[in-house]
Structures are given as C-alpha cells and as structure tokens.
C-alpha cells in the first residue's frame, strides 16, 4: 500500500531523515517509534505532503508520488492527524468535520453515522466551536475529521499526547476497529510505549533520522523494541 525507498528530508540546510525505507499495508497498524527529535513527525510531514522529502521515492497503492501539494495528496486518500491536532478553532465541530468534504464528490458529502458511533462525544458537541473543546475531545474530532474523506492511508501523530487514560483507551479501540475493517493502512507515531506496542502489527524504530530496527510484532520481542527506544 505505502512504500518509501531511500527517503530523505531537509529543513533548509540541515538533514533530518537519512534514507528511510518503510512500508505499510492495509488492515495493519504500522508503528513508527523513537525518542524525541529522531524525525518521526518529519516523516509524517513528508508522507502527508506538508513538507516535501528532498530525495527518494514514495509510492502509494503502486502509484509513484511526485511532490504534489498537500491538498492533492489528501485527495489521493492520505489523511493526516497532526501532533497538536490543529482543529479549526472558530468553526463548529460539524463544520470541522465538513472540511473533509473537499475530497469527496458532491453526492457523497454527508457525515456518516459511523463517525458519531466511534466518537459519541462529537454528536453531543456538534454545535460547539472546535477551539472550545477539551484536548481529548479535540483529538477525537481530529481523528473523526480525518475519516470523513474515507482515506486509504491514515497518519496519526501522537494521538495520546496530553490525554486522559479513558479517552486514550477509547482512541485505541477506534484504531483497532479501523484496522480490523481493513480499508486503510494506519501509520501511528507514538511515544506512549504500552499503547503503541499493544496496537502495532509492524514496527519501525528511528534513531537519528534512520531506521535502526524494523520488523513485525511476531519477529521482535517486546524487550527488543523497548530497548531500542530507551535512552
């Protein structure tokens, strides 16, 4: 589904990613792990088109992706839930969801009931402004909003950051549900080890901008993964 080869990325002069080879499949959670500042968020930026890679190849469903603007990638089915959530603060919860309609043909522009079943709180808060929600509610809104466009690749950047335990559990259940549905590949960047380990099917551990350990859950022991992300 998703494949990158020798992907590099620079912020003006300084190189952040050094030749990342990674893959993600439909119906699987691919977990990108690593300590702070190893380039996890930068990798997601390259995949979502918000900051383009400087070299290497990127294919999606067999299609080679050049360096299109972010909105064109979104229309190809890449949905991005950024770190810090980036809710539109002055728009209502419903309007936030509706921004995803840009990727859909006119006759499919409705908010599916499924979104509200996954996140009942969004139904309750439908008319509230996004910026007035709590952090946990915003995170749920950000994931719900990403699902509107029926993506084939879902990029989640630290969905548990600063969120209370019962909401984290709920988000975990949603990710499992989406994986089992099998319609999309999920790339999860996460620092909360237990959460990430519990969900992951595949691991890619980054160290200083390069993949230092990768493999399926079966091929790696928990201790190996744990050791690779400890400082």
């Amino acid at each position: 589904m998703l494949q990158t080869k020798d992907l590099t990325l620079h912020y003006s002069g300084s190189q952040i990613l050094y030749g990342i080879d990674m893959a993600a499949e439909r119906g699987q959670v691919t977990c990108v792990m690593g300590t702070n500042g190893v380039g996890k968020t930068s990798l997601l930026k390259a995949l979502s088109g918000t900051h383009h890679r400087s070299g290497g190849s990127y294919t999606l469903d067999g299609e080679a992706i050049a360096k299109p603007p972010a909105h064109a990638l979104a229309r190809k089915g890449v949905a991005y839930v950024p770190q810090g959530r980036d809710i539109f603060p002055l728009m209502t919860v419903r309007e936030n969801l509706e921004t995803g309609f840009a990727c859909l043909p006119r006759e499919e522009r409705f908010v599916p009931e499924q979104i509200f079943e996954l996140f009942p709180v969004l139904k309750e808060m439908e008319g509230r402004r996004g910026g007035d929600l709590s952090g946990g509610q915003q995170q749920q809104l950000a994931i719900g909003r990403a699902l509107i466009a029926q993506p084939k690749l879902l990029l989640l950047d630290e969905p548990t950051e600063g969120i209370q335990p019962n909401i984290i559990q709920q988000i975990g259940r949603v990710i499992e549900y989406l994986r089992d549905e099998g319609k999309m590949a999920i790339v999860l960047v996460e620092q909360y080890f237990e959460f990430a380990y519990g969900l992951a099917d595949e691991f890619f551990v980054l160290t200083r901008g390069a993949v230092s350990l990768s493999g399926s859950k079966a091929s790696l022991t928990k201790e190996e993964v744990m050791a690779s992300v400890s400082v």
Partner: peptide
C-alpha cells in the same frame, strides 16, 4: 456555503486546510 466554509478553514489554519484537501491558493 461551501466556499464560506473553505474560506474560514483556510484563514484559520491554511496548512491543516490543505491536509483536508482544500486548495488554499
């Protein structure tokens, strides 16, 4: 209107609006 929604999305957060498939330009 749809245009109004996209205008507000772009003015509040152009980068996120683009990630939602809206062409900010």
């Amino acid at each position: 209107t749809r245009l109004g929604l996209e205008v507000r999305a772009v003015t509040q957060n152009p980068r996120m609006a683009a990630s939602m498939g809206i062409n900010p330009d």
